[in-house]
Amino acid sequence: MQIFPCPFCGPRDETEFHYVGEPKARPEPAEAVSDAEWSAYLHLNANPKGASREVWLHMTCLESFLMTRDTATNAVLGSEPFTRAAS
């Protein structure tokens, strides 16, 4: 059983978390996106061995965040809230 650090709640049991996916930019507008680009967005993942940056959701506080894990050892290398570009 793994312990994941929620940036808002601290270390919590893995059963409280939901894996969302790799961080990706959503290609849009739809009219300007090719089939290949869209297919890559939907289905292609880097799936690295080693350090992997992933989006997770802490289901008890409902905040999503970025976590970096080593996919070979399951070691957690860090977690951070999303930062927003100034708009």
Partner: peptide, 14 residues
């Protein structure tokens, strides 16, 4: 549905 709305709210909206 709550999860999905939250994820997009935090990702795409203020």
């Amino acid at each position: 549905v709550v999860t999905r709305l939250e994820l997009w709210r935090q990702d795409r909206f203020d």
